[in-house]
Design a protein around this nucleic acid. Sequence first.
DNA 1: CTATCTGACTTGTCAGATAGGTGTTGGTGG
DNA 2: CCACCAACACCTATCTGACAAGTCAGATAG
Lengths: 269, 269
Amino acid sequence: MKALQKRIGITQDTLAQSLTERFIFGEEALDGLMPSTRILAEEYGVSRLFLREVLAGLQRQGLIETFPGKGIYVRKPSMLNAARNVHTTIRQSTATARDLIEARGNLEEQCAALAAERATTEDIAQMEFALKALDDANGLIPMAQADIAFHSLLAKSTHNPVLQIMFGSITTLVFDTMLRSLSDPEIYKEGAPLHYTILKAVKNRDGLAARKAMSKHIHLAEDSYKNDLDCELREIAQRIVKDVLQSSLSIEEILSSALKDYSVDLGQS
Amino acid sequence: MKALQKRIGITQDTLAQSLTERFIFGEEALDGLMPSTRILAEEYGVSRLFLREVLAGLQRQGLIETFPGKGIYVRKPSMLNAARNVHTTIRQSTATARDLIEARGNLEEQCAALAAERATTEDIAQMEFALKALDDANGLIPMAQADIAFHSLLAKSTHNPVLQIMFGSITTLVFDTMLRSLSDPEIYKEGAPLHYTILKAVKNRDGLAARKAMSKHIHLAEDSYKNDLDCELREIAQRIVKDVLQSSLSIEEILSSALKDYSVDLGQS
DNA sequence: CTATCTGACTTGTCAGATAGGTGTTGGTGG
DNA sequence: CCACCAACACCTATCTGACAAGTCAGATAG
């Protein structure tokens, strides 16, 4: 039996691919509920444990979500779950605030300019909603969530999935600096109105103005961060968590809860 | 015992974090060999299976590598393993060649310009090595590997980890188009010399020239791809694999073997 | 001294059992 | 007839104990 299975050659990868084809991209399980692990394991002739590990992989990729007592649900893919893996991987690297501003500036200026050309009325409505949420937000983390949402939606408004992927890959790093910027009254006072400037420029289809406002928005930190400019992002974020939020949680824990249910759809148009 | 464990609250996440702190970032297991699963499981008071799932997660992030019969080794983190997760996640999205050129152009032009300012002699030597490998490469996949290596090294030469992350997140997509471009004599003939133009500009510390050459290099495809421009990247890549390589493997399988051992170190300077 | 073999490791996988959560269903009291 | 609630069936998560298969070092026979 073992030998047979080996001959057939079911590996975790092949099973994962098969399941993905069937349930994620295929049309089965329309309501999003997958068959139970027992049934699936029997169906594919593997043990439940083996199947479980495969499912764990899919879950880590954010493709499915499991609920004890309920079942396994297919999930709309979100960039952020994937991005978190990237974040863990690069924890060892020494990205500073200056690095992020440099890279993010270039990316988001492009996003702003393209969004001005391509944003639909629905995109704009969503961004307006995010800015309203930012105004109404109570507390640093909800603010950062709304801020991230705005920038993600702007990337989405380019209707270029690749730009969304790139922004997604640095989302957690952006979140780190947002904690710093949003808790700094000086930056917030100058930076928050620029969100509206950007959105207005997008509405007016004025790519250049959108790009300029975004540039100003992102480079604000360059003048205000002072010593923090060449600090590692994680250090900065961890300090804010400790001093401002007075929480003993690690930045990783904050991140995973703050970005958990957060999901900006991928452009399918 | 179960209740106790719950009270202590060992979840997969906390254990993963604990193990990461200890073995990846910590100084234990200097030779890279971790204690066996039995020992670790006993040490943390969890079952071996539970530990296994946690380790599977770390492995998926590319932080460790397991060898049956030998043990578990700590691995140097590589962007690409993480990037592959992103790629899977966005399979559903409909990124076209045009999307990639647009996004990648902006990013890589910035990389070229910054590399011209900051590349060390060692960076340049590595890039030269990659170009030599590209010239000597035999077959489409080794060529694509060398090509990817060159562009990754250019991103590394900016000494900005965030740019490396962003490039890493789209590496698999870039690989897709490389299969197409490298198998097209017209593009290859014009595109290959531009690699040397870029490298020369970097050597001369001429950021503008580097940026221009990169722009030309990437936008070459815009004139030659024709109908493929608005094709989905996966479709293009899959067709090349089938027609040119005459392989029945899926593009995912090609990718995972081609990028498996590939790793450009993260800048630690 | 060399070749081989044994035994003690390792990971990978399995079946079966239990814990704990969730939703449904059918019976009972109003 | 309706509302409530308890029992039940199903789900995932996890544990225990076991075995297969790979690896390696050291003992042993030639």
